[in-house]
Amino acid sequence: MDLFSNPFYQRALAAALLIGFANGFFSGFVVLRRNALSVSALSHTMLPGIAFGILLTGALTQASAFVGALFAALMVGLGSVAIARGNRVAQGTALAVIYTSAFAAGVAILPRLDTRQELEHWLFGDIMAVGDGDLQIAFWIGAFTLISANLLMRPLLLTLFEPNVAAAQGVPVRFMHYLQFTLLVLSLVSSLQAVGCVLSVGMLIAPAATVSLLTDRTSALFWGGGALGAVGAVGGVLLAAWMRLAPGPVIVMLLGVMFLAAWVFSPKYGVIALRKS
């Protein structure tokens, strides 16, 4: 119980709750869109963005890391959407080319940086180092993502499943594609402090993927994913404190355990249910 009176753990738990729910909610779009590999590519793009931020500012700070990661992920993500508009190159192909090029550029400049060892903090996250400014960023990004997704839920889903029908009904399909990737990038960057570049994929895929094994309701993917993401993030911080481990990896491992449990025990799609049928 002493943890709850510690200001570091208070901020860590608040950040876990905010980031876990917002990312868990948006994971519904990732699962429905079936673009988990795109999320993985964008998450790794944040590393060269951080490297370029250090190169331009000369120091590794919260601001340079956040702005660099956000800029790189937006450029790669929205760039792939723009290239795919011509229908000659698939979006996945464009994303792979731009992502690997950006990542190669980041790797090339790493030897010129004096802060390479400090980058581990951003690779795997350190939610215990969250400050008041990071909490504000997580809150506003989460609020913007949740409000935008709920206000535009119908056109976003219609664009996701039936883009031609959406266009015929007057939905700005191109804008919706850009908006989805923008919200995806913002969700990734918001979890940068908590779990880092490498592990941020887990928070944006595992919650809704777990819920999808338990129910067929689309709305449950979002709200259930948000609840599961929040429980997994907060539970990961508490479990990490008890086990004396880094919180970021524990959060993602806990979400992975929940997914495997759903896969085994799901009454409809689980291993046990399939064997009985």
Rank of each mutant, 00 (worst) to 15 (best):
M1R: 07
F8E: 11
A15Q: 02
L18V: 12
A22H: 10
N23P: 11
G24W: 08
F26Y: 15
S27Q: 07
F29H: 08
V31M: 14
R33C: 11
L37Y: 15
L37Q: 14
S38F: 12
S38D: 13
H44E: 14
T45D: 14
T45F: 07
T45L: 13
L47Y: 01
F52N: 01
G53I: 04
G53R: 03
A59I: 04
A59D: 11
A65I: 14
A65K: 13
A65P: 15
A69R: 02
A69T: 01
S80A: 15
V81Y: 06
R85L: 04
R85N: 01
A90W: 08
Q91G: 12
G92F: 14
G92T: 10
L95W: 11
A96Q: 08
Y99R: 05
Y99K: 04
A105H: 11
A105C: 14
A108L: 15
I109E: 03
L110V: 07
P111Y: 00
R112H: 14
L113E: 09
T115A: 14
T115D: 13
R116S: 12
Q117R: 05
E120C: 01
E120R: 07
H121T: 03
M128P: 02
L135V: 03
A138Q: 07
W140G: 06
I141R: 10
G142H: 02
G142D: 04
T145M: 15
A149Q: 04
N150T: 12
L152S: 08
M153R: 09
M153K: 10
P155A: 08
L157D: 06
V165G: 00
V165K: 02
A167N: 03
A167V: 00
Q169T: 08
G170D: 07
V171C: 05
F175S: 09
S187C: 15
S187Y: 04
V189W: 06
S191C: 06
S191H: 06
L192T: 05
Q193Y: 09
A194W: 06
V198N: 05
L199R: 05
S200H: 01
V201R: 02
L204T: 09
A208K: 08
A208Q: 12
A209E: 10
V211K: 00
L214Y: 10
T215A: 02
D216G: 03
A227E: 09
L228C: 04
V231M: 10
A233N: 00
V234H: 07
G236H: 10
A240M: 03
A240H: 03
W242N: 00
M243G: 01
A246Q: 05
V250S: 00
L255V: 13
L255F: 15
F259Y: 12
V264N: 00
F265A: 03
F265L: 08
S266E: 10
K268I: 02
K268H: 07
K268Y: 05
R275D: 02
K276S: 05
